[in-house]
């Protein structure tokens, strides 16, 4: 499988659009997941995926085949998403009651407990948006995107210690926040 991907990447580097289309088909889901978790919104995430793949097409000839394609792609997607977020001044108010219901849903493990994109975006935004930027990105990449610590270090240009410290603080803040929501749920 990896050899097949490498061959597609090589063909795309040589300007083969059909091979690039295969790459887009294969990787757009991963790119979308990351962009969505940074921006909490489907349409914005789609815009970011589109812009990112155009950047990838323009720069693919400079891609170093020695490194994993996903790491390179994630870096482009993440930077594009961060730029997009800076340009967005959207203010979306999520009601506390709504969040408590969504948390109850997310805590249950049953098949009926799925959240749609809008609900999922609201929960992530509510719990992660107030974190400082570094902590938020480390949390998204490490805990939500489930990336290896070494990949997170490379994507954010941070040391291993810095990633660990940011993740620790982010988890502490989230734990306290979720604890307070838990108390509100119990009072209802």
């Amino acid at each position: 499988m990896q050899n097949h991907i490498n061959s597609i990447i090589q063909q795309a580097k040589e300007g083969n659009k059909s091979a690039f289309k295969n790459l887009v088909d294969h990787y757009q889901k991963y790119a979308f997941n990351l962009a969505f978790r940074v921006l909490y919104n489907e349409e914005d995430a789609k815009d970011v995926v589109q812009d990112s793949f155009i950047k990838i097409w323009i720069n693919i000839k400079h891609f170093n085949s020695g490194m994993p394609f996903t790491t390179w792609m994630y870096k482009i997607v993440m930077n594009t998403a961060i730029d997009k977020q800076k340009s967005l001044k959207r203010f979306e108010w999520v009601k506390e009651d709504e969040i408590l219901n969504l948390l109850t849903t997310i805590e249950c493990d049953g098949p009926d407990c799925r959240l749609d994109n809008e609900q999922l975006g609201s929960v992530i935004k509510k719990i992660a948006d107030e974190l400082p930027e570094k902590q938020r990105l480390v949390f998204i990449l490490r805990d939500l995107q489930d990336l290896e610590s070494s990949v997170v270090e490379e994507l954010l240009d941070l040391s291993e210690t810095s990633v660990k410290a940011n993740l620790y603080h982010a988890r502490q803040v989230l734990r306290k926040k979720l604890e307070s929501y838990g108390e509100q749920q119990r009072r209802r």
Partner: peptide, 10 residues
């Protein structure tokens, strides 16, 4: 909650 959020892919 975090693990479930991670699994709940958009």
């Amino acid at each position: 909650i975090i693990a479930n959020l991670s699994r709940a892919e958009p």
